[in-house]
Design a protein around this nucleic acid. Structure first.
Lengths: 96, 96
DNA sequence: TTAATGTAGTTTATATTATAAACTTGTTTA
DNA sequence: TAAACAAGTTTATAATATAAACTACATTAA
């Protein structure tokens, strides 16, 4: 009835990041920062965690002379996201 | 785009408790414990927090000689729950 | 040319939170 | 009457989220 919610996704900022990434081919650090309104530090940490879990890939390159970090969701991440959404539904519909 | 998620509801156990309570007139401690699979300690703490926030009422009585704690959702809690669900939808549908 | 300001992050310190272990109070059973 | 059980609560710990402080380099202003 109440499956365990993936703790990597059950986090405000990481969920926001993943929600953005499912709908887009890729997104860079500054874009994610703007969209989520997060601080750089927080975003950096949460991106690391998603990467460590294999939910996203992170590429560091340059845009001109400026550093640029690009994130993409992986198949594993996509799968985990879907599963999380399904789990959540079970919670929310428990009272019916 | 990404509204703040009510931290009182964005918690696995408290969300489970609230999900049960929205669909039922009242529920007692042991019932909630069985349904959620939580430990007594954890459940006790989380019920306190929901009560402190005014999301539920807690009545302590006896069933025969045994103590019995009964929980009910309040209008405020109902409202907060609905709002939380709406907010979540915004997250999950962000990528569309 | 160098000082100041801005950009794109990372590291680390702190404060909050969730959670379980240990405890309490009383009840039933052996 | 001692042991085991029921229904919780309190407290200690471990995990987490978050922002503040920092690094490295680029651009602009003096």
């Amino acid at each position: 009835m109440f499956p365990k919610l993936d703790p990597l996704l059950h986090s405000e900022l990481r969920l926001a990041v993943m929600s953005i990434l499912v709908g887009v081919d890729e997104a860079d650090f500054t874009y994610l920062k703007k969209q989520t309104g997060a601080t750089s530090g927080n975003l950096s940490v949460q991106i690391d965690k998603l990467m460590a879990a294999g939910y996203i890939t992170v590429e560091k390159g340059f845009k001109g002379k400026m550093p640029r970090t690009t994130c993409k969701i992986t198949a594993v991440g996509q799968e985990a996201f879907n599963k999380y959404v399904e789990s959540l539904k079970e919670y929310l519909s428990a009272g019916k």
